[in-house]
């Protein structure tokens, strides 16, 4: 694997995470418990769609095959996606989306903070923009996790159920493969071991502050890095890609 190939895969991975998360967040449009949260959730969706566009555009520019960001977003099949499984999971309720986004936004905040120092200038520039968004997403969702955990009996129960259901999908965020290793040596990619330490520290402080508990069972799902996804991704793609697939000659 050349550095260029690794960089392509790395950008696709980051871009896919933003793309699939933004899809799930956009589903909250006109479905949130209050208008303020409808705005907040679709705002996150908007940030992440923008991020997906930048990262996939950059990926397309280094692949040598000249794909556009839309080609990559809308014309690949399930096994070609490299997002983490956690971003595909459907949101059962408001507690689920808040806990999920707290986990992933905290990860992204530390990830992009590190990537601001990347030797790849484009990636560093995208990271500089993304870290500001992720900081806001992390703060907003953490506030809600605390509010729900320390709110009523029902909200605490729902938040705890979300933590239990999502915890087994958090380990994958930090999986390191050949792509990471090759790019880390060149100073391009972030060190995920270090990010995991920061992430854990933040989460370990936030969860008890929300009167919630972390599960003791440490079983973790895996598969996103090699394109083996949950059953949910296929449904996301069949909806998201519908127009691009049904009218392949059309320009939108």
């Amino acid at each position: 694997m050349t550095e260029q190939q690794a960089l392509f895969k790395y950008c696709v991975r980051l871009g896919d995470n933003a793309l699939i998360q933004s899809y799930r967040l956009a589903e909250w449009c006109s479905n949130a418990p209050m208008l303020e949260e409808d705005l907040a959730l679709t705002n996150m969706a908007l940030d992440m769609t923008g991020r997906a566009q930048m990262l996939l555009q950059y990926a397309g520019s280094i692949s040598g095959e000249g794909q556009t960001s839309d080609d990559l977003a809308y014309r690949r099949s399930e096994p070609e996606y490299r997002n983490n499984l956690i971003s595909e999971l459907p949101d059962n309720d408001f507690a689920f989306v808040m806990v999920k986004q707290m986990f992933t936004s905290t990860f992204e905040y530390f990830l992009y903070l590190a990537l601001m120092e990347s030797s790849d200038k484009t990636l560093a520039a995208i990271a500089a923009k993304s870290v500001k968004e992720a900081r806001y997403h992390m703060a907003h969702t953490s506030d809600w996790v605390v509010r729900l955990g320390d709110g009523t009996g029902e909200s605490n129960r729902r938040a705890q159920e979300a933590v239990n259901a999502l915890w087994p999908y958090t380990g994958e965020l930090f999986e390191t493969d050949d792509v990471d290793r090759l790019l880390q040596e060149k100073g391009v990619a972030a060190n995920l071991e270090q990010i995991q330490i920061w992430w854990r520290q933040y989460v370990i402080e936030t969860i008890p502050a929300a009167k919630l508990e972390l599960p003791s069972d440490d079983y973790q799902h895996t598969g996103g890095r090699i394109g083996v996804h949950t059953e949910y991704l296929g449904h996301i793609l069949s909806e998201m890609q519908y127009l691009q697939r049904a009218y392949p000659d059309a320009k939108w």
Partner: peptide, 30 residues
């Protein structure tokens, strides 16, 4: 009015289209 437009967010045919539609529906909500 957010409902009929929201009906198409997940099927918006390009990243740009999704961004614009999201921004628009956010405006309506605002």
């Amino acid at each position: 009015g957010m409902q009929p437009e929201g009906n198409w967010i997940t099927r918006a045919p390009s990243l740009r289209a999704r961004q614009i539609l999201l921004a628009k529906i956010q405006d309506e909500c605002g």
